[in-house]
Amino acid sequence: MSGTPLSLIVEVKARHEEAQDIVTLELADPHGRPLPAFSAGAHIDVQVKPGVVRQYSLCNHPEERDRYLIGVLRDPTSRGGSVAMHEEIREGDLVQISAPKNHFALKPAGRTLLLAGGIGITPLLCMAERLAHLEADFALHYCTRSAERTAFRKRIAASGFAERVHFHFDDGAPEQKLDLKALLATPAPDTRVYVCGPTGFIDAVLSTAKASGWPGERLHTEYFAGAVADTSDDDSFEVRIASSGASFTVPADKTVHQVLTENGIEVMVSCEQGVCGTCLTRVLEGEPDHRDLYLDDDEHAANDQFTPCCSRARSKVLVLDL
């Protein structure tokens, strides 16, 4: 992944099986030095192996400086990241990572609703730790397939906020399953909603909330994977580099990032799915065809930036601020 700023070397100090198909890795400086500070909702880039970089949310208490804790789901549709993390990374290994980045930060609110689907618990658990520390009003709803696939149950049970956590299992009794319509029926004043998990789970939460009148600025999301785009109607278009005037054709079967790389123009990328925002690039002219899950609706409508790892163009030419 060209350009990904993997500036830190950490050691895998511990590895635990948290639940079925979920492991946690505890990362620390090999020499015991403090790690860069992070805030609730932050993530790091991890070089799983050469050429494979993935993003993982930090799920330990945000005031800790001696370690980073990440949770990894073994994804059967993995493109090489999660399977390698499960099968190849062991205690004592040295791993390259980035400094923490946060595109999913907590904002002040009178009350906070945290909605986690599966491994989406990782950033929300860190948020729960922070909110509990601040003695803030919040509730965490944690949805999984089954109790066996529910990570961090012991940690939550031992926490000071256990009574604020509600578990919902797909294979459980009907009455314990999450009723989104009831939970989000009334847009409560001064309440913010944070949701993380599979795309389908996030979409269900957002559509239910919006149907009930929740304003978009109080709904906060973080996706772990990009949506599968329909590429059947993709066509070629031109990208022009503002600084040099150079113009390149982007064919239907290549991304903007791939074409730029082939022509010696480096743009930082990481997830390559329009999730992390690493490759965000300013657009000076033209209309992007947005396919990311990073920018919100208003940012898409502005058409002044896009993600060249996955987004394309509606206009014949895009002029990029490169």
Rank of each mutant, 00 (worst) to 15 (best):
E238N: 07
E238H: 12
V239M: 07
V239N: 04
V239G: 03
R240D: 04
I241Q: 06
I241G: 00
A242Q: 14
S243Y: 08
S244D: 03
G245L: 12
G245C: 12
A246N: 06
A246H: 13
S247K: 13
T249I: 11
V250I: 14
P251M: 14
A252N: 05
D253A: 12
K254W: 05
K254H: 11
K254I: 04
T255S: 15
T255A: 07
T255I: 10
V256E: 01
V256N: 00
Q258R: 12
Q258N: 03
V259T: 09
L260T: 04
L260H: 02
L260N: 01
T261W: 10
T261H: 12
T261K: 13
E262F: 09
E262W: 08
N263R: 06
N263F: 11
G264P: 02
G264C: 04
G264R: 06
I265S: 00
E266F: 11
V269P: 02
S270K: 05
S270R: 07
S270F: 01
C271I: 08
C271A: 09
C271N: 10
E272N: 15
E272V: 03
E272R: 15
G274V: 07
G274M: 07
V275Q: 04
C276N: 11
G277D: 06
G277M: 00
G277C: 04
G277R: 14
G277K: 13
T278L: 08
C279D: 09
C279P: 09
C279R: 13
C279F: 03
L280Q: 13
T281R: 06
T281C: 03
T281A: 04
T281E: 03
R282M: 06
R282Y: 01
V283E: 05
E285G: 04
P288F: 08
D289Y: 02
D289E: 15
H290L: 07
R291G: 02
R291W: 07
R291V: 02
D292H: 08
D292P: 02
D292N: 06
Y294I: 05
L295S: 10
L295A: 11
D296F: 00
D296C: 04
D297A: 15
D297R: 15
D298W: 12
D298V: 14
E299Y: 03
E299V: 02
E299F: 00
H300C: 14
H300W: 15
A301S: 11
